[in-house]
Deep mutational scan, measured.
Amino acid sequence: KELVLALYDYQEKSPREVTMKKGDILTLLNSTNKDWWKVEVNGRQGFVPAAYVKKL
């Protein structure tokens, strides 16, 4: 599985998104969309802005 690092805090704005804190390590589930990547964090799956994370 591929991991990404949260570069910034992000507060979810819809049920399809997830909240993350700067420094969190997230599991990358899908990065086919250039703007929104699907990740898993704390057992929850959802989208975060691709610009807010970096592949490890």
Rank of each mutant, 00 (worst) to 15 (best):
E17N: 06
I25S: 03
D35M: 14
T27Y: 12
I25M: 07
D35S: 13
G43N: 12
V41G: 13
K1A: 13
L5H: 05
K1F: 15
S14A: 10
K13A: 12
N33V: 05
P15Q: 10
L29P: 00
V39N: 00
L7F: 04
E40I: 07
D24G: 04
D35N: 13
A50R: 08
A50I: 03
L29C: 06
L5G: 02
K54H: 10
G23I: 01
A51W: 08
Y8I: 13
L29S: 03
V41F: 11
L5T: 10
L5N: 02
T32L: 10
A50V: 05
L26N: 01
T19F: 05
K22D: 03
E40P: 00
V48M: 01
A51F: 10
L5E: 15
L7C: 06
V48S: 00
E12L: 08
V18D: 00
V41C: 08
D24A: 08
E40K: 06
E40V: 08
T32A: 11
K55I: 13
E40D: 10
L7W: 03
M20W: 02
V39L: 04
P49H: 02
M20N: 00
L7I: 12
L3T: 11
E12P: 14
A51C: 09
P49K: 03
N33F: 09
S14P: 06
K34M: 13
K54D: 08
Q45M: 14
W37F: 08
K34H: 11
V41A: 13
F47M: 13
S31F: 08
L29D: 02
W36F: 06
Y10S: 01
D35Y: 09
N33S: 11
T27N: 11
K13L: 11
K22M: 10
P49G: 01
V18R: 02
V41Q: 12
L5A: 06
V48F: 00
V53P: 00
N42W: 08
K54S: 13
N42I: 07
E2C: 08
Y52Q: 06
Q45G: 07
A51S: 13
I25D: 01
T27V: 15
K1Y: 11
G46Y: 03
W37L: 05
P49R: 04
Q45D: 09
K38W: 15
L5Y: 15
S14N: 14
V48Y: 00
V39S: 00
A51V: 10
Q11P: 07
N30S: 14
E2D: 11
I25A: 03
A50T: 05
V48L: 02
W37G: 00
K13I: 08
S14C: 07
K55Q: 10
S31I: 06
K55T: 10
R44N: 07
M20H: 01
L56G: 04
L28S: 02
Y10W: 11
A50M: 06
L56A: 06
R44V: 10
L26E: 00
Q11C: 09
N33E: 11
R16K: 13
E2P: 14
Y10T: 01
E2A: 10
V48Q: 00
V41H: 15
Y52F: 13
L28D: 00
S31A: 15
V48A: 04
E40R: 07
I25Q: 05
W37C: 04
L29T: 05
K38V: 14
K1G: 14
L26S: 02
K21Q: 10
K55Y: 12
A51Y: 10
K34R: 11
Y8Q: 13
L29Y: 04
L3S: 08
L3C: 08
G46C: 04
A6Q: 01
D9H: 06
K22T: 08
P15E: 13
K13M: 14
K55M: 15
R44Q: 08
W36G: 01
V39W: 00
L3Y: 15
L7G: 02
K55E: 07
E17I: 03
E17K: 04
D9V: 03
D24Y: 05
V53F: 05
N42T: 07
S31Q: 10
R44A: 07
P49Y: 03
N33A: 09
N33Q: 10
K54R: 15
E17L: 05
V48R: 01
R16E: 15
N33L: 10
L7N: 03
L3H: 10
V4A: 14
E2N: 12
K54T: 13
Q11M: 14
Q11A: 13
Y10G: 00
N42E: 10
G23N: 07
G46S: 02
D24N: 07
K21M: 09
E17G: 14
V4R: 02
N30D: 15
V39H: 00
A6H: 01
Y8C: 10
V41E: 04
G43E: 09
Q11S: 13
I25F: 07
V39A: 02
D9W: 03
Q45A: 12
L28Y: 02
W37Y: 09
V53K: 00
M20A: 02
L56Y: 10
V53Y: 01
N33W: 08
A6P: 01
L7Y: 04
W37V: 08
T32S: 12
T27G: 07
V18F: 15
K34G: 10
E12W: 06
K13H: 09
W36N: 02
L7A: 04
L5S: 05
N30E: 15
K22C: 06
N42A: 13
N42K: 11
K21D: 04
T27L: 13
K22H: 05
D35R: 12
W37E: 01
Y52S: 14
V41D: 08
A6L: 02
F47H: 06
A6N: 01
K21H: 12
D35L: 14
L56N: 04
V18Y: 04
L26V: 09
G43S: 07
L3E: 08
K55G: 06
G43M: 06
K13Q: 14
P15V: 11
V53L: 15
L3K: 12
I25R: 06
D35V: 15
R16Y: 15
K1H: 15
P49T: 01
K21P: 01
S31E: 13
R44K: 13
Q11F: 14
K38T: 11
